[in-house]
Design a protein around this nucleic acid. Structure first.
Lengths: 189, 189
DNA sequence: AAATTTGCTTCAATTTTTGAAGTAAATTCC
DNA sequence: GGAATTTACTTCAAAAATTGAAGCAAATTT
């Protein structure tokens, strides 16, 4: 296990601060200063960019895992939907809320997932318009395999209590951004 | 200015921790527990999901701003490329590294940005294969307008020192994930 | 100077996203 | 209780984004 690869920042510990004029590698532009020379630190654009880049990487990993598992009838986006569903049994509307998908989009994914027998649709007798969705055995197994694969990455990255807290902070911060940006979009700032 | 909207978590301050069994709203599934009942906190999947959702929101805001500004020949993805370029004058390759785009993809964007006169291509006499890219006056103005718009969101969200630190932590954490996931993809875990 | 590499661009095929329209069930309103 | 409206999706067609292979010209190596 190559630690140079897994832990690119040897000094990434309790004192996690941005280096003011660090040795910027080609891949990591210094986010410490914005256009106007303000001493503002991270801007939203930079955060949005790193989110996009990291998401792309994550999709890549998912795709790789799927290929390893011999799954070729769904892509990373569909796998993500499976993971969003998890152990829950929910309606399309609830799934929409969970993932902030667009309706027609999730329909499109669910169709493929249903075609591939990754999910079951159970007609609800309460409301015949909305069937309830849940993972089929096949879907559950795929999710388990993906989560298992993820575990090795977790082990590779999450170490101490501080790392866990950083993940928490990142999650909460992004979640808050998600809410604020969503509300801003709906109601105008 | 509606504070209920802008500050959905009144208690989001120094003690930013996940509520063990919080009052989960419909939009915010409790990430405190995973499938296996481990007391693991944030999983990578959850982080990846929140990144995706927040990115979607951000793109939405960008699109809204573009519409407000009467820009209809480019989308949020292209605007993002403009913002990535910023004040720099760089080659396509450098831009590729900055944003982790795929080559043919950035070509596609740059073509549209060039068609819309948002960027200039300056033939480099050093290496005639790679022109240098920089924002045109039009592109610069658009970026300025977008950054200006972003400022109001910044003001709405970034308050104290703690908030800034949280943004930093989020950025660094995602950046680290980006690297680790990228390396994992290239070399296998 | 031939061969290889670099730094892109183009093209065609896929995949993903979006928006408008449609449908059937549920609910509300006379 | 029946018409009108709303809800909860699905379908469809078009647009946008992404990918991978192939191509090309300049630069570099051999």
């Amino acid at each position: 296990m190559n630690h140079r690869i897994l832990y690119p920042f040897a000094d990434f510990g309790d004192a996690m601060v941005v280096q003011p004029e660090g040795d910027t590698t080609r891949n990591t532009p210094d986010p410490g200063r914005d256009q106007d020379g303000d001493r503002s630190l991270i801007t939203y654009f930079e955060l949005a960019r790193v989110m996009e880049r990291a998401s792309r990487r994550f999709s890549g990993l998912l795709r790789t895992e799927l290929t390893k598992l011999g799954v070729d009838d769904i892509g990373s986006a569909q796998a993500m939907v499976l993971l969003v569903i998890g152990e829950a049994e929910l309606s399309v509307g609830e799934l929409l809320d969970r993932g902030h998908y667009v309706g027609s989009n999730i329909s499109y994914y669910l169709k493929q997932l249903a075609d591939g027998d990754y999910i079951d649709r159970i007609a609800s007798q309460r409301d015949k318009r909305s069937a309830r969705i849940r993972l089929s055995e096949k879907g559950r197994q795929l999710c388990t395999a993906l989560r298992e694969a993820a575990k090795s990455y977790e082990r590779a990255l999450s170490h101490g209590e501080q790392d866990r807290r950083n993940l928490e902070t990142a999650f909460q911060t992004l979640h808050r951004l998600e809410l604020v940006w969503g509300n801003a979009a709906r109601y105008g700032i």
